[in-house]
Write a protein that binds this DNA or RNA. Structure first.
Lengths: 350, 350
DNA sequence: CTGAAAGCGCTTACAG
DNA sequence: CTGAAAGCGCTTACAG
């Protein structure tokens, strides 16, 4: 029964149901194994056979059933995104990026927030991965920094990609390095160039790799130009708005106020704005402020906030793309570099 | 081969692989069909048989393979979340809510943002639903307002739940009504009680049901108390920060400024803040502002913004829960009611 | 209440 | 380069 690209080909398929590999094989006059080879891009198919079958598949709108394929492969067509606690915009951007990579690939994105502070969250991720037979997992900060989590995935034989602030060794997974240090270096350069010397720093929790990188990048750059930041002007906060408020209150209570503050993220910078506004301290006339994230908040504040942009969507696209690529390329490292977006929150010191 | 709860039971299962229904049946000394009945909560199983098998399943940590079940059922264990364009915090909250309902249910959440302004987005959703054989779909505003989308799902026989600003008829899907009108009524009552009479309104696009409900609820309440809002003080904007800025500029350019502004969401209220701050108009001394959403932005602005809270996470939990409930209950309507969170952005008129 | 057979729509392992 | 058989781990339809 040879295939014919006739209007009635579709009618040969049981109506009301989607075509199966058997329908395609029958209509094309080949075995289902040959159709399977074409679905899986095997080179062991004659060119004209492939073209004939592909045309038929297009004609009837055939797509293989991911459940059946998954069962036979012992692996689903699902990509998991594992994350804990970051800001909403960051998560949504990361999801959009991942979906950019997965679009029309036959893979879908399954979201899995977790709480890395609970002792057994790794078991939760393990059950998720094992039960769904995930094809791969994206690890987003801060979960991505947990080596035990990565080790568990390696042991399960589940491929994963890690988004990390700084590059390091991992034999099993792929790294996407966001180079947070460089963003902080740029922020420091900018403030120095404006002429600031009395500079303060509000950091995220120093148990976070991102906070460490941003802090060191910032302080090292100042030190290189001979600017020391006294201990009292380095405040470890927690990446939240409220902690930014508290940090700013502490800084403003000192005998001499800094002329510029670098904040480890925009949320904390918004806290600084609030305290400054309340205290009648004018930004940027009396005080310059730089944030990190370039979140929507940055342009909603007034004056709009100078901040480091992270290209989160690109990061997500790369991380997800690395999981579905068929070439079993060597475990490479990809880089996404931040850069400073200058707005209206800084000027030379008074 | 009777089941024994002995330490070596697990060793009867091929090492390195997860247990299957066949392992359970063999170790329990029953047929796989009986195990299947237990998995699916069939009443046609003797109590002691059920208990024996369930104990064994717990002992070996057996969970049925969703791919195999999905293939046999012709339906996956995936819930799709379809949405277009709302704010990040809203989407993330909705996802958290849905995941609350799906936790430990065996179902997973697959995210599917779309763009309802493109003509063929419904086809995209259709492919998504058909190809993945979704168990159900959550429709989030504004996509949830599109009757054609709902009709397509009904035609496919895919169950769905719709989150909508106001209740209406739908024979196929379940409704979760967020009663946006009530939130706006509360905002109007509050401003009237403070003594405002010169009131302006910045609405979302009036093609959005949410914008219509909020607008009508607000204006009707004012009218009932004899307060008319002149046309020039009702500005249709687009739920964005920038559109809020433009609307505020227009309102402030009038001969007489309103003493209070109700904004259809917090983003636009942030735009009003920006213009007021730049123009030296003091909030709340010269101008009272009320938002809608109670987004994180509301407490980050200074003075913190009085806004209508939506209980988005609860909404998501109900919408997802309705899709996985086994009781084929009548298609009911659930309600989530908003309420005003009073902060520091309002006071009696000058 | 319980079970043996057939099937869901694919792939693997083997043979040619 | 191509195919027939067996299998992935479940459920449905039928029989008892």
């Amino acid at each position: 029964m040879p295939a014919r690209k006739s209007p009635d080909t579709a009618s040969r398929i049981p109506s009301g149901k989607a075509a199966t590999i058997n329908d395609i094989a029958r209509l094309a006059g080949v075995s289902k194994k040959t159709v399977s080879r074409i679905i899986n891009n095997s080179p062991l198919v004659r060119k004209d056979t492939r073209e004939k079958v592909e045309a038929l598949m297009r004609e009837v709108g055939y797509t293989p059933d991911p459940l059946a394929r998954g069962l036979a492969f012992r692996r689903s067509f699902l990509i998991g995104m594992v994350y804990d606690n970051p800001t909403a915009q960051y998560i949504v951007d990361m999801q959009y990026g991942a979906l950019d990579a997965l679009r029309d690939s036959g893979f879908e994105l399954v979201v899995h927030p977790c709480d890395s502070r609970t002792p057994n969250y790794i078991d939760g991720v393990r059950r998720f991965v094992q039960q769904q037979k995930l094809h791969g997992v994206m690890l987003v900060p801060r979960a991505s920094e947990d080596q035990k989590l990565a080790d568990m995935l390696a042991e399960l034989g589940c491929r994963y990609s890690r988004i990390v602030p700084v590059g390091f060794e991992d034999n099993d997974g792929r790294m996407i390095v966001t180079h947070d240090r460089e963003g902080a270096v740029e922020a420091a350069d900018y403030l120095l160039t404006l002429g600031h010397r009395d500079i303060a720093l509000i950091t995220g929790p120093l148990t976070y790799r991102s906070a460490i990188e941003r802090t060191n990048g910032f302080l090292d750059t100042l030190a290189q130009r001979g600017v020391e930041v006294p201990k009292a002007r380095i405040i470890e906060a927690s990446y939240t708005f409220e902690s930014g408020v508290a940090a700013a209150e502490k800084l403003f209570a000192a005998r001499q106020r800094p002329t510029a503050i670098f904040c480890g993220n925009d949320e904390m910078a918004a806290g600084v704005y609030k305290v400054a506004l309340r205290a009648g301290i004018s930004i940027p006339r009396d005080l310059s402020v730089v944030g990190y994230d370039d979140s929507p908040l940055a342009s909603r504040l007034w004056p709009s906030l100078t901040s480091v942009r992270r290209h989160t969507r690109d990061t997500g696209r790369i991380a997800a793309g690395a999981l579905i690529r068929t070439d079993t390329a060597p475990l490479a490292v990809a880089s996404v570099r931040p850069h400073l977006i200058v707005r209206d929150s800084c000027q030379p010191p008074p």
